[in-house]
Simulated scan of single mutants.
Amino acid sequence: MKKISKIFTFSIMTMALLLVTSCSDDDNGPTIPPEQPMDPLNIVETALGENSLSTLVAALQKADESAANDLVAALSDENGTFTVLAPNNDALQTYLPVWTDLIRWMILTVNNFKTYWPQYLRIMSFPELR
Results as ranks from 00 to 15, higher is better:
residue 15 M to K: 06
residue 19 L to F: 13
residue 20 V to W: 15
residue 25 D to P: 03
residue 25 D to F: 14
residue 26 D to Y: 11
residue 26 D to K: 14
residue 30 P to Y: 11
residue 30 P to I: 11
residue 30 P to K: 11
residue 30 P to Q: 11
residue 32 I to Y: 07
residue 34 P to Q: 08
residue 35 E to T: 15
residue 35 E to I: 15
residue 36 Q to C: 05
residue 36 Q to N: 05
residue 37 P to W: 09
residue 37 P to I: 14
residue 37 P to K: 08
residue 39 D to P: 01
residue 43 I to T: 03
residue 44 V to Y: 01
residue 44 V to F: 03
residue 45 E to A: 10
residue 46 T to G: 04
residue 46 T to H: 06
residue 47 A to P: 01
residue 47 A to D: 03
residue 48 L to K: 12
residue 48 L to I: 03
residue 52 S to T: 06
residue 52 S to E: 11
residue 54 S to G: 11
residue 54 S to R: 12
residue 57 V to F: 04
residue 57 V to M: 05
residue 57 V to C: 03
residue 57 V to K: 02
residue 58 A to L: 09
residue 58 A to T: 12
residue 59 A to N: 06
residue 59 A to K: 00
residue 60 L to H: 01
residue 60 L to S: 00
residue 60 L to K: 00
residue 60 L to Q: 00
residue 64 D to A: 03
residue 67 A to G: 02
residue 67 A to R: 05
residue 68 A to Y: 12
residue 69 N to F: 08
residue 69 N to Y: 06
residue 70 D to W: 03
residue 70 D to I: 01
residue 72 V to L: 08
residue 76 S to D: 01
residue 77 D to K: 02
residue 77 D to F: 02
residue 78 E to W: 07
residue 79 N to P: 00
residue 79 N to S: 12
residue 79 N to G: 01
residue 81 T to E: 10
residue 83 T to N: 08
residue 84 V to D: 00
residue 85 L to V: 05
residue 85 L to N: 08
residue 86 A to S: 08
residue 87 P to N: 05
residue 88 N to P: 03
residue 89 N to I: 00
residue 91 A to E: 09
residue 91 A to P: 01
residue 92 L to V: 10
residue 95 Y to L: 11
residue 96 L to D: 10
residue 97 P to L: 04
residue 100 T to G: 07
residue 100 T to K: 13
residue 100 T to N: 11
residue 100 T to I: 10
residue 104 R to C: 14
residue 105 W to Y: 13
residue 106 M to E: 07
residue 107 I to F: 04
residue 111 N to K: 12
residue 111 N to C: 11
residue 112 N to S: 07
residue 114 K to H: 12
residue 114 K to S: 07
residue 115 T to P: 05
residue 116 Y to V: 10
residue 118 P to Q: 04
residue 119 Q to G: 13
residue 119 Q to I: 13
residue 122 R to C: 13
residue 123 I to V: 15
residue 123 I to T: 10
residue 124 M to E: 15
residue 126 F to I: 13
residue 126 F to K: 15
residue 128 E to P: 06
residue 128 E to T: 14
residue 129 L to Q: 06
